[in-house]
Design a protein around this nucleic acid. Structure first.
Length: 488
DNA sequence: TTCCATT
């Protein structure tokens, strides 16, 4: 297990040697265990839950199957109404499978007429982005042969040679890796590279058709047979991109789930980012998922007095901010994790409170730091009185390509200043903007931060993506470049 | 009963 040096900084080499252990069990520093997510973790959809149950109520029910990485009750985007369902990710894939088999349709929660649903979220797909179709195999090649061919590229979850009724190979197979990147690597190295004995041409290695593509193909065939061509087909066909036209045609025909299939790359990118989050933990910080977190009210924070509109407790795990007092906040440590290392990255931060906060931020990759017990009230006080904050900003709203971050799942209470403060440790913040609903003046819980150089942005992603607040985690990604995601 | 938002 990793150790922490006297000053609280975990040593570099400690990280590399403990990585695999960390993946299995969480990384332990002192008494603190950092939750980490398996690279092949499954996001579960939880359905049929009573609307009066919030994250903290659901947690005990699911914790029994393993450490929870993230749990989010779905709320209506506008009204904030509980939708009666949730998303749940365990640190370990195994826990998800256990929970699914133990709970799915197995019991009915109080007040519900249908049994609880626990199954992989729709967004998880069925691994189509990591499943390969392999063609032009030799007829005598077995599953084992195919595995050997692919195993150097990653972990193979599934390998099936397609066979006829007589058991004879059809000369093709499906190979499912544990990640998209592994599958892609196999394509890069193997496709067209060699010709198997008895095969008529070189090996074919491509992503297996998704359901959508299959549907599409079928519709295409049907449309062809019926002589139907939608106006969309003609319009987009003029651009000459066949696959694109197909996509658009499907859009016209199905008029459903457009986002997900028009931009599959976004989903993949998101998945990769999540993997990075699991990686970026680095074992640098430890803050326990405080035993009291979510189950009791820390002294000084009155959970029942939370004004529901201003700062709903259940939504982000925060207590409402106390009214701004005129005195100095008490300078007791905000983060009681015993770790106060702080590399001199942010010479502008002089307030000890801010330092403590910023230091924790820096190491926070994946951690449940901002639990109700530990925080934001004091945080916000310290932030709000920072006359010495550097004046970064203005004139330009964003930095060069690669320097701009998109941040999602910000606490409702965070404004521009808090956002900037949170990212200052990573470099020069050119701007920090939280989006605010014009009608209600409420934060939309996402925003942008721009640095003056790409490495600061990367450092911020490394440290802050996956940063846990309550039961949610910040999503920190490079801002989508303008024009990305436009069909043409 | 399926989140997701890009100055």
């Amino acid at each position: 297990m990793a150790t922490v040096t006297a000053n609280g900084v975990q040593q570099e080499n400690g990280f590399s040697t403990t990585n695999s252990a960390a993946r299995m069990n969480g990384l332990t520093i002192g008494q603190n265990t950092i939750p980490m997510k398996d690279h092949d973790a499954i996001k579960l959809f939880i359905g049929q839950i009573p609307r009066n149950l919030e994250e903290k109520d659901l947690k005990p029910l699911f914790e029994e199957f393993g450490k929870i990485y993230e749990l989010t009750v779905l709320k209506d985007r506008f009204t904030g109404m509980h939708k009666g369902c949730a998303f749940l990710t365990y640190c370990a894939r195994e826990s998800a499978l256990k929970a699914q088999s133990a709970l799915h349709e197995q019991k009915t929660l109080p007040g519900m007429n249908r049994p609880i649903q626990v199954k992989p979220a729709d967004s998880e797909g069925r691994g189509e982005d990591r499943k390969l179709f392999v063609g032009m195999l030799g007829k005598q090649q077995s599953e084992e042969d195919v595995r050997r061919l692919f195993e150097t590229f990653g972990q193979i979850e599934e390998c099936t040679v397609l066979r006829g009724p007589d058991g004879a190979s059809k000369g093709c197979a499906f190979v499912k890796f544990s990640s998209h990147a592994e599958a892609q690597a196999a394509i890069n190295s193997l496709h067209g590279g060699q010709t198997m004995p008895g095969a008529s041409s070189s090996l074919v290695v491509k992503f297996a058709d998704t359901d959508k593509e299959r549907t599409l193909r079928r519709m295409h065939q049907m449309a062809g047979q019926l002589g139907i061509f939608s106006p969309m087909t003609i319009q987009f066909g003029a651009y000459g991109a066949y696959s694109h036209a197909m996509m658009q045609q499907q859009a016209a025909l199905m008029a459903a789930t457009q986002n997900s299939y028009l931009n599959p790359m976004a989903a993949i990118a998101a998945a990769q980012m999540q993997q990075m989050a699991a990686f970026n933990v680095n074992g640098l910080v430890a803050a326990p998922m405080t035993p009291s977190s979510g189950t009791s009210t820390p002294p000084g924070i009155n959970a029942t007095a939370v004004p529901s509109l201003a700062a709903p407790m259940g939504v982000n795990g925060f207590a409402s901010l106390p009214p701004q007092t005129n005195g100095q906040p008490n300078n007791e440590p905000i983060y009681t994790n015993g770790i106060h290392p702080y590399p001199a990255q942010s010479p502008t931060v002089t307030d000890p409170l801010q330092q403590a906060y910023a230091g924790v931020q820096h190491y926070a990759g994946d951690l449940p730091l901002l639990t109700p017990a530990l925080s934001p009230p004091s945080l916000s006080l310290s932030l709000s009185r920072s006359p010495s904050l550097p004046l970064c900003h203005s004139s330009r709203h964003y930095g060069p390509e690669g320097c701009n971050l998109f941040i999602y799942h910000l606490p409702q209470e965070f404004g521009d200043a808090e956002l900037m403060q949170m990212f200052l440790p990573f470099g020069n913040v050119i701007s920090a903007k939280v989006f605010v609903d014009r009608a209600t003046n409420q934060s939309k819980c996402f925003g942008f931060v721009s640095f003056d150089n790409p490495s600061s942005a990367q450092a911020a992603i490394q440290a802050m993506n996956g940063f846990q607040i309550g039961m949610k985690r910040l999503k920190v990604q490079l801002k989508r470049p303008k024009d990305a995601n436009r069909p043409y």
